[in-house]
Design a protein around this nucleic acid. Structure first.
Lengths: 211, 211
DNA sequence: CGCCTCATTGAAAGACATCAAAATTTGTGG
DNA sequence: CCACAAATTTTGATGTCTTTCAATGAGGCG
């Protein structure tokens, strides 16, 4: 179900471009949808910034269940973890370009990395609150509000991820995700152009469902 | 239900003692059970190491639901968060003594703090996996195994926290926690001396319930 | 057009929550 | 040390929400 395409990036070039990258020299890598960026157990010696596209970070249980711990959108950093080897998988969701920073860069900028690690922890803990204490509607609402805010408050969301990705992120099944989306649509809280394009019609209603 | 006792520590003294504290000078503070260490919104300018006792970190939803994001046992650090103000509450669970480190200390040791932040993120993400993808039995099992490992593998656990704390940590109700514990006892995976003292009889059985 | 993947919808089952009450433990004062 | 009150934990009955299983529908691409 979750077979990752084992392969290295389609292209890697040294560049200094991309939308608002972290300063300093870095590599640019591009990945096709579903391509693995790193795997559990891989050496943890780089970090990444999304230029275009989207990335999912996840872990698998032995029976195949998957928990997506985070999505990363353009401008966001990921890849830093405790320990010398990755405990998670990272995959491109859509066609994705990344700025890649090496170990040296990270050592030189441990101050920024600290801030990133702290916000990463805060994000994970906020997510814990959603998964641990919200019903299905609350989880979806929180997810949509979060996505909206991370895209600068734009009311029209283009979802890069599938229903399965969302379900695995929120600790639900795809059927429940689908049913909740349908319900929110019926209540005119959101509107769907297609399954991956959502208009937030009543943002405040959505927010009020979050707590 | 979760009324915190608003008060400052019972005592604060400058000391250099306690079990394996972080190096350097620090204050020592003691707290009675239930006492608040910091509140959501408080200035975030210190970090703490548990000397004795136990601490819970949590957030509240507007309707009173609570999510405990972490417990901290002797030797463990807590209190570092993104942002200049705390997003969580910290409370002593039992009679607790803490080593308190100030801003200066943290600035001087941002390297260690980075490692702590990264492991904090890893912990939160591991916890996400448990809450998001495990049934009630798996959550309790993971909780007990984690506690066992954090206490150096000792098979006899003295739980400092109540069933309500555990429930709010695992995203369950106290009734479910109690029923699962009863079930594990019936299967001879664990044994109870009293509600707060658990012997792990079959650790491998417990582990196998985690994934 | 047909096939494949992804998404939606329906019916039934299951897991956990809720409500209620009993049992056990803890703390307090005599 | 015992007695009593309060808090915590356990147990039972019932209800609700989410999952599971199954089938249908929609969209993309050869």
């Amino acid at each position: 179900m979750y077979a990752a395409v084992k392969a290295k990036p389609q292209s890697i070039e040294v560049e200094h471009l991309g939308p608002a990258p972290m300063s300093g020299p870095h590599l640019v890598a591009t990945y096709k949808p579903g391509r693995e960026i790193y795997a559990q157990g891989d050496l943890n010696d780089k970090c990444y910034q999304v230029s275009t596209g989207a990335v999912r970070i996840y872990r698998l249980l032995s029976d195949g269940r998957r928990q997506v711990v985070s999505f990363h959108l353009p401008g966001e950093m990921f890849g830093f973890e405790a320990g010398s080897n990755h405990a998670f998988f990272a995959e491109a969701i859509t066609e994705t370009t990344l700025a890649v920073f090496g170990r040296r860069h990270m050592q030189e900028r441990s101050r920024e990395l600290l801030a990133l690690a702290l916000t990463g922890m805060a994000r994970a803990q906020q997510h814990l609150l959603v998964i641990g204490r919200q019903c299905a509607v609350g989880r979806i609402a929180a997810f949509l509000v979060d996505l909206c805010e991370r895209q600068g408050g734009c009311r029209q969301l283009r979802l890069p991820m599938s229903r399965q990705d969302i379900a695995d992120y929120l600790g639900l099944t795809i059927e429940t995700v689908s049913r909740v989306v349908t319900k929110l649509k019926a209540r005119s809280v959101i509107a769907l152009r297609d399954a991956r394009t959502i208009d937030i019609v009543r943002l405040e209603a959505l927010r009020s469902l979050c707590d």
